[in-house]
């Protein structure tokens, strides 16, 4: 082909379809490592573990920090440490492999290319994640990059870091509840009923909002929006249509089932404490 005969400036194959998904644990881990970094270090770097999903998304699930030292023009990475840690992690979860590396700070810096090269030897096409722990431009920027090589013929000219879309949705953390992860101190975990109460309050607030909106539209204070209307009607129609007696029966049946269970468990508990008392009484006699 022509390309092989002439020296042509070649861009590496760009992987525009690549996306990355990050679990909140990784961010927590990076922040923790950053807080615990050695005195003289300006940033922390480390390995990202995870897997590649069938649709090509890189799923970043775990991470660990790797000690390094950095001067103006060179970077030394503790490779032995990196390998030890990898072996330890794989003992627990063999499915998690290296997918890339992370560094704190904003954007890609000069030393990054060297480290990236090291990780490219560990895994093809690693992801480089940067987490701006310094909040340099006023927000905590989290970005992911892949590198593509810019080569002239056979000669490597430079590495180009290309940003890839990053999915920061945190389903896992949502299950725990942001309330406990967002603030610096929570005194008490919610129990069953308190959590229920909070959820119901939120639901009530949402319903109130919808009511207000509909009332405002009906009275002409707010311009109607068809898409919102469609969402509302969809929500309302998602309630199953049941005749009132059938619904009553359903609710009452479930109530009775639950009451029965409650009764059973209470009676068991009473029985247990009674047995305890009788036992000690019998032994005293």
């Amino acid at each position: 082909m022509a390309a092989s005969e002439h020296t042509v400036l070649q861009f590496g194959t760009s992987s525009s379809t690549l996306t990355a998904k990050i679990h909140p644990l990784v961010i927590f881990n990076i922040c923790d490592c950053y807080v615990r970094r050695p005195d003289q270090a300006e940033r922390v770097i480390g390995t990202l573990l995870g897997s590649i999903l069938p649709d090509g998304t890189v799923d970043i699930r775990n991470s660990y920090a790797v000690p390094h030292s950095e001067s103006a023009d060179q970077v030394a990475l503790d490779i032995e440490y990196h390998h030890n840690m990898l072996v330890s992690h794989q003992k627990v979860n063999p499915k998690e492999v290296i997918v890339g590396w992370y560094s704190t700070g904003l954007g890609v810096t000069g030393g990054s290319a060297l480290i990236h090269e090291f990780y490219s030897r560990e895994v093809p096409n690693p992801i480089h994640l940067t987490v701006d722990t310094g909040f340099n431009n006023g927000e905590g920027t989290i970005k992911a990059y892949v590198s593509s090589n810019l080569s002239l013929g056979d000669r490597q000219l430079a590495a180009q870091f290309q940003e890839v879309p990053l999915d920061l949705r945190m389903v896992e953390a949502e299950r725990v509840g942001f309330d406990i992860l967002k603030t610096t101190m929570v005194d008490k975990l919610q129990n069953d009923l308190e959590g229920m109460e909070a959820s119901m309050e939120r639901l009530l607030a949402l319903i109130d909002d919808v009511y207000k909106y509909v009332d405002n539209v009906v009275e002409g204070h707010v311009a109607p929006d068809n898409s919102i209307g469609r969402f509302i009607s969809e929500t309302v129609s998602s309630l199953p249509k049941l005749s009132p007696p059938a619904f009553d029966k359903l609710v009452n049946d479930s109530l009775q089932d639950n009451l029965l269970l409650l009764y059973l468990s209470s009676i068991t508990r009473t029985q247990l404490s009674l047995a305890e008392k009788l036992n000690t009484a019998a032994q005293i006699l």
């Binding site: 922040c31 945190m170 953390a173 942001f178 101190m185 005194d187 607030a205």
Partner: peptide, 20 residues
């Protein structure tokens, strides 16, 4: 009790706006 470092708390607030 649950505690988080100020850094993490800042990130969480940044990343997740208050969702209803």
């Amino acid at each position: 009790k649950v505690s988080n470092s100020a850094l993490i708390s800042a990130f969480m607030t940044e990343l997740e706006a208050d969702t209803p």
